[in-house]
């Protein structure tokens, strides 16, 4: 006679407990809140917000057990989040740009990357921190940091600090750029290049370019930088792989999703998948934030902040020089 298996017994044996569910729910709420706020104000990056919410929740509760649960879910959530985040990447068609703009954008991004990396090294920051800050500054801000973090395996505190710092630098740009435009009487097209080439987060680019009505252009230029993440991720995964030419599956899947979504996938589906992907990644960041001690994050000090600001300033100066020289 065939034995019947009761569902309760099966549930008991599952690795998911009630506390796990509570925790997952909390993290999901954080992610969801961050997403909702970012919709209301695109300048506020959902990943940054989810991390901050996670940090706040974690440091308020100070529940070690829950921290462990969150820690346990990070390795599961992160690759999934990265893969899905691929839909947010839109590889642009470079033929639609002026070559000078593409060149200036690439040079600027590279310059910022190298400048941040060099300054970080000079300030004796850890290599992981330097890479995180360089990628965050040069490519696409918080999302770049989140994507490359599993490759270079930084400390949670360094990761959190890098996200915060990049957010701060980006927001500073959002604040300052209108002022710069106001005092220099720059044309809206050129402002689109400035913001697209030097500002960190897509949301901030959007906000700052809205003022001058060049949102589309700025985001397109920013798209070039975002596309660089695919290249950087590939290179970094090879550099940091434990064996030669090993690329983790989630990077491959991330790149595949990014390529697929920006080419073949119908735009409607991509648009509908984007919130899910963002919430998923935000939840992962909330989980990371939950396990982080704010005191230790704080310990990163002012030096990475200086490095990030200085590198960004290099990029800004370069673009301003290019604009001022009349090449564009």
């Amino acid at each position: 006679m065939r034995e019947t298996v009761k569902l309760i017994e099966v549930a008991r044996e599952l690795p998911v407990s009630r506390k796990d569910l509570q925790m997952l729910l909390l993290l999901l709420v954080c992610g969801l809140m961050a997403y909702l706020i970012s919709i209301a104000n695109p300048a506020l990056e959902p990943l940054f917000l989810a991390l901050v919410f996670g940090i706040i929740a974690g440091n308020l509760q100070k529940d070690g057990e829950k921290g462990k649960i969150a820690e346990r879910y990070v390795p599961v959530l992160l690759p999934v989040g990265i893969t899905l985040y691929g839909v947010n990447i839109n590889i642009p068609y470079l033929g639609g740009f002026h070559p000078e703009v593409v060149a200036a954008t690439l040079i600027s991004a590279s310059l910022i990357f190298l400048a941040v990396f060099w300054i970080s090294s000079r300030l004796k920051l850890s290599k992981q921190m330097s890479v995180l800050l360089a990628c965050g500054s040069g490519i696409c801000g918080v999302s770049a940091i989140a994507i490359i973090s599993p490759l270079i395996k930084p400390k949670k505190e360094e990761f959190s600090a890098a996200i915060m710092i990049i957010t701060a630098v980006g927001l500073t740009g959002a604040i300052i750029y209108p002022t710069i435009a106001h005092f220099t009487n720059i044309s809206p097209e050129k402002f689109a290049v400035l913001s697209g080439a030097t500002l960190h987060q897509t949301g901030i680019v959007k906000i700052s370019s809205q003022l001058f009505g060049v949102e589309e252009e700025a985001l397109a230029i920013k798209g070039i930088r975002i596309a660089m993440i695919a290249l950087v991720v590939l290179v970094l995964s090879i550099i940091y792989s434990e064996s030669r030419f090993y690329v983790p599956w989630y990077i491959v899947s991330f790149l595949g999703v990014a390529l697929f979504s920006s080419t073949y996938l119908p735009s409607g589906i991509v648009q509908s998948l984007r919130p899910l992907a963002t919430v998923m990644f935000a939840t992962t960041l909330a989980a990371i934030g939950y396990t982080v001690n704010v005191g230790k994050v704080q310990r990163a000090g002012i030096r990475p902040l200086i490095a990030a600001y200085a590198g960004w300033m290099v990029g800004v100066v370069f673009i301003m020089l290019v604009i001022g020289s009349g090449v564009l």
Binding site: L44, T167, T172, V297, I302, L305
Partner: peptide
């Protein structure tokens, strides 16, 4: 909302400055 941005930037800078001092 730009004031909120400023606040966030100041908070973050303060946080790391304090961290640096502490």
């Amino acid at each position: 909302s730009y004031y909120a941005y400023v606040l966030i930037v100041v908070l973050i800078i303060s946080l790391f400055s304090a961290g640096s001092i502490l």
